[in-house]
Amino acid sequence: MQLYNQYCDGMLIVALRFVKDTMEAEDIVQEAFIKAFSKLEQYKAEVTFGAWLKRI
């Protein structure tokens, strides 16, 4: 939950740049976090977690 709280606002801003619809952007953010948490073991500290998450 701490990771979500730390990065959700930034992720929403990024998603809104692509879709311009708040509800769709929120769905995109949720899907991104689901993918990220399911592949968390693949995260390498070569980049920041935020950068890795935004690529998803």
Rank of each mutant, 00 (worst) to 15 (best):
I13N: 05
E41M: 08
K54D: 05
Y4A: 00
E41W: 06
E31R: 13
T48V: 04
D27I: 06
I13W: 05
A32L: 14
N5Y: 14
D27T: 08
K35I: 09
I34D: 04
K54Q: 05
T22A: 13
F49I: 03
Q30E: 13
D27F: 07
K54A: 12
A15T: 04
Q42W: 06
Q30Y: 10
V47N: 12
T22L: 15
F49W: 12
D21W: 01
A51C: 12
G10N: 04
I56N: 04
Q42E: 13
A25T: 08
E46L: 14
K44N: 11
Q42N: 13
Y7G: 00
K39Y: 05
L16S: 02
K54L: 06
L40R: 11
Q30F: 07
D21R: 07
Q2P: 03
F33V: 02
I34E: 13
E46Y: 08
A25H: 04
A25E: 05
S38F: 12
E41G: 03
I28R: 04
F33P: 02
L12V: 04
K35R: 15
M1Y: 12
D21L: 03
A36G: 02
V19K: 13
G10P: 01
V47D: 09
M1R: 13
R55Y: 07
I13C: 07
A32K: 15
I34T: 15
Q30S: 15
K35A: 11
K44A: 08
L16P: 00
Y4D: 01
D21H: 03
K35T: 15
M23A: 12
Y4G: 00
R17M: 06
E31N: 14
R55W: 03
G10I: 00
E24Y: 13
F18Q: 14
V47L: 05
D21V: 00
E26H: 11
C8W: 11
G50P: 01
M11I: 00
E24F: 09
L12H: 08
L53F: 01
I28Q: 05
M1N: 14
K20D: 05
D9W: 06
K44F: 02
A45K: 13
K54F: 02
Q42R: 15
C8H: 15
A51W: 02
L53M: 01
F37V: 03
I56M: 08
I28A: 05
E46R: 10
Q42D: 11
K54E: 04
F33I: 04
K35G: 05
M1D: 10
Y43F: 11
M11L: 12
Y7W: 04
M11C: 14
A51P: 03
E41N: 10
R55G: 09
F33K: 07
S38N: 13
T22N: 10
E26A: 14
F18D: 06
Y43K: 06
R17P: 02
A15E: 07
E46D: 14
Q42M: 08
V14G: 03
R55H: 12
V29T: 06
W52K: 04
D9L: 03
G50V: 00
V14L: 12
Q6F: 00
T48H: 10
M1P: 06
L40W: 09
A32S: 15
Y7C: 00
A45S: 12
E26M: 12
L3Q: 04
A51G: 07
D9N: 05
I28F: 08
K35M: 12
A32D: 08
E26D: 15
A45I: 05
V47A: 06
A51E: 08
V29C: 01
